[in-house]
Design a protein around this nucleic acid. Structure first.
Lengths: 331, 331
DNA sequence: CTGAAAGCGCTTACAG
DNA sequence: CTGAAAGCGCTTACAG
């Protein structure tokens, strides 16, 4: 029932090929013909089928995005930037939630490949590098966010300076006189946890402070888990007077824990988060945290991916966004 | 380069049609043949092209979602429910951000139609009912969320009891002794604003309280706008001692305004929000608000849409979710 | 139980 | 400047 190219051709009394030419604005078409065809298109309300076109061109004008948890404001901000950029470039985007679990992540990759997306932006939860490379070779280009991979054709990387961010956080805590600093690390399956933990360890050691494994607790980075982990950390190791959290959600949980333990923030326990989500400024006390431009991160991921699509041979270096410390009241 | 049905057929020494049969698990196939084909599929890592299939079946196994602002936690929670439900039903989903503006919304509808999505879930910002009906007739079924339309084949509705929620909020404020109640309404282009404002007006009148148009301010429902609107409301009309907000974001803005005006919440000014997003419980003071299950709302929207797709003739009544008042400290 | 033909709605060489 | 043929990778009747 939808109107096809054939209908337009018939109405304009030309061949299908000619319609195709004016639709795609390619090849020479006599002005008079072009106008007749345009008129027919207008009149019939013709819109070319992306499906049919894709079948022959192997381009669908779609991108896939796989996030860990769309409910986490970090990812929704990122998605917003990604969507705006995609739209600006003429792509529509499939969204998939992996829950930061491997199986759903693989399922999402497969599913996106089945739909022939042109490219994928992925927050890998955990994924064998070889597997991902195999996927890229067999299917479509992937831009990986927040995880450093070995460079590989068809794989792009968009990173933030997580290590530097962790250093900023610890430096700040040390400057406030803290010597016993713990960390609420993200769940181990989040690859970028590694960078933040690294930065944390390095900086603590660089300051000549004690570094205890028991002071680093790994949990799923949501508020309630942060609360429980902080409760445990501060109860079992009361000497800890400062906490660096993998992200703001965990930091908020830590603030709740302090309230329950009647530890004043920042006097009895200082807390620094990471991401600077909207919530960070709204909580009491307002959170000192490491800021990263999440919208920009999403935008850059698309920019890189589109570049890869436009020139598959190009060797594009990883993109890395700077971070900065935002000092509020929690530390 | 990707492996096709033809490759499988060749390897299994059968016709393409037979491969199609085992892939789609339809028609009788001799066991021995089926196994040979399955083995070939396995061996070659064959995956059927959804594109090619869609071209003939007119089914893409995709759904579209158009939200106003993915950055608003209401929508991200909704999306989460929608994604989980879609996946459970075998659909992948396109996400579009309309920014609650008409043009991007229409562009998104068109774009989704171009990709032949099977159905669409839409938060209409403002859209002529006739236009939407025309779209549905020409293209694909749409489930509209949070806006009451006249019933129409191909259009489903998922609602929440917004009016009832507004009543709960006002009743609560009245029970606390408030007699001068203002409202921070959402920007007028949000259709569901209507229900909440209606419920507000009705209930205020039902209690025999004054209802002043100047006490109802319409703004874009984000925190900063809420802050400014509340500042204006409480400065120009200091007699107002209670505020009902269209959503939690506006309510949070109102709390900030009160802080700036040195009005204690709830003693000098009581505030009630709507949605019960995560932030509501975390702000100081914790927000009294109207709870609605956003995840469930997303899930229900998909359920309804899939029903419509499975049986285009069925007349499915609107789905309406209950709401409840969550009393915390802001009122 | 299995296959050959036609077609979904386009684009890509190739002619003229 | 314009068109006829082949084909993208599948499924849908229809035969046998």
């Amino acid at each position: 029932m939808p109107v096809t190219m054939r209908d337009v051709a018939q109405k304009a009394d030309v061949s299908i090929k000619t319609v195709s030419r004016v639709v795609n604005d390619q090849g020479e078409v006599a002005n008079e013909t072009r106008e007749r065809v345009s008129a027919a298109i207008e009149e019939l309300g013709y819109r070319p089928s992306k499906l049919a076109r894709a079948l022959v061109t192997q381009r669908t004008d779609t991108l896939g995005l796989i996030v860990s948890d769309i409910t986490n404001p970090f990812f929704s901000e990122f998605s917003c930037g990604m969507l705006d950029a995609s739209q600006a470039q003429g792509y529509d985007v499939f969204l998939c939630n992996s829950g930061a679990r491997v199986k759903p992540e693989i399922r999402a990759l497969r599913s996106l490949a089945d739909h022939n997306v042109d490219g994928i932006i992925l927050f890998p939860s955990w994924l064998n590098e070889d597997k991902l490379r195999a996927f890229v070779e067999r299917h479509r280009p992937v831009v990986v966010v927040n995880r450093a991979f070995e460079e590989h054709p068809g794989m792009g990387q968009v990173l933030m300076d997580a290590r530097g961010g962790a250093k900023l956080a610890v430096d700040h805590l040390v400057s406030k006189g803290h010597t016993a600093i713990g960390m609420l690390a993200g769940y181990a399956t989040y690859p970028d946890v590694f960078q933040r933990v690294c930065g944390f360890r390095e900086t603590v050691v660089a300051h000549g402070l004690p570094l205890k494994d028991e002071w680093i607790i790994a949990v799923t980075p949501v508020i309630e888990q942060g609360r429980q982990a902080a409760l445990q950390l501060l109860t079992q190791h009361p000497q800890v007077t400062a906490v660096f959290a993998y992200n703001d959600l965990l930091a908020v949980g830590a603030i709740q824990a302090c309230r329950e333990l009647e530890r004043r923030v920042p006097d009895d326990c200082a807390i620094v988060g990471f991401d600077n989500v909207q919530l960070a400024a709204l909580i009491t006390p307002p959170l000192t945290t490491v800021h990263v431009d999440k919208y920009e991160l999403g935008w850059q991921a698309v920019t890189l991916l589109v570049r890869m699509l436009d020139d598959p041979e190009a060797e594009l270096p990883p993109v890395c966004l700077d971070v900065e410390l935002v000092i509020r009241e929690s530390a």
